[in-house]
Amino acid sequence: MVQVLLFFVLLSTGFSQESSARLLKTEETFSFLVLVTLCSLIFYFIQQAKSGKKLWIRRIPALASVEEAVGRATEMGKACVFIPGIMDIDDIQTLAGLNILGSVARKTAEYDTDLKVPVAKSMVLSTAQDVVKEAYYRTGHPDTFNEGNIQFVTDDQFAFAASVNGTLVREKPAAIIMLGTFYAESLLIAETGNHIGAIQIAGTAETSQLPFFVASCDYVLIGEELFAASAYLSNDPMLLGSLKGQDYAKMLLIVFMLYGVFAELSIRFFGFPEFLSLIQYL
């Protein structure tokens, strides 16, 4: 981690040197500074967590309900379906979904409940298989792991939705967890899940799909909550520290936004031009 900070510090000094001006893309200075600030805050809080400081994270109902969903599936003797979105492994939302899949798989392994994972990309398939396998091994239930339950369906959006809907209607799982990137298929799958009476937990950072999930699912992880989920579920102090850093970065952004609003109003109503230069820079 120290190397990462050094990496950023060296780059930051590069921005300030006249001779380096041609080497560095000066148009990206602001984005870079935001990135450095954000990463420094995260790094600081990780260190705080490492030193043993207790960090409080608010309760996220959707994540607290994962156990409830798996428990319900166990009681009913039905399967639990996990869908990590329709995008490939290079999508950060898919990775966030797969990180949560590990926690879900550990719970299904402990409760001896079937976990079905239909995937839309073949690279996600091998990763998901590894994640679930590791969870079953770690909980001491390697014998109950069934590789066929993690299945590549198709990389076509609507064909994937049709296949998942078919599985849901035929097998009637008790719990459906959808975490990752979803587009138009989100409502098709979520409404089918609702019709079969499954408990549904969904999460995505796609703002256009969130209303559909809110209308059809029992619990929804909205935007950043999806990325906080793995840290929340793991309860690892270092990961929780990174969440704290993220929250402080958000507070900093809110201060910037308030400044922007204040400055804009000042210019419009009182004509204070001194605010303008910073606003234009931002």
């Binding site: 990462v4 990463c39 899949l101 906080a228 990174s242």
Partner: peptide
């Protein structure tokens, strides 16, 4: 508001993966 929060989450998540703090997606040891 959701997009800003999500973007911060993406950066934080990427940073955690970059420095090897979040390794769940890597599967088996």
């Amino acid at each position: 508001a959701i997009m800003i929060g999500a973007t911060l989450g993406m950066v934080a998540s990427s940073f955690r993966m970059w420095i090897g703090l979040e390794t769940e997606h890597l599967g088996r040891d």
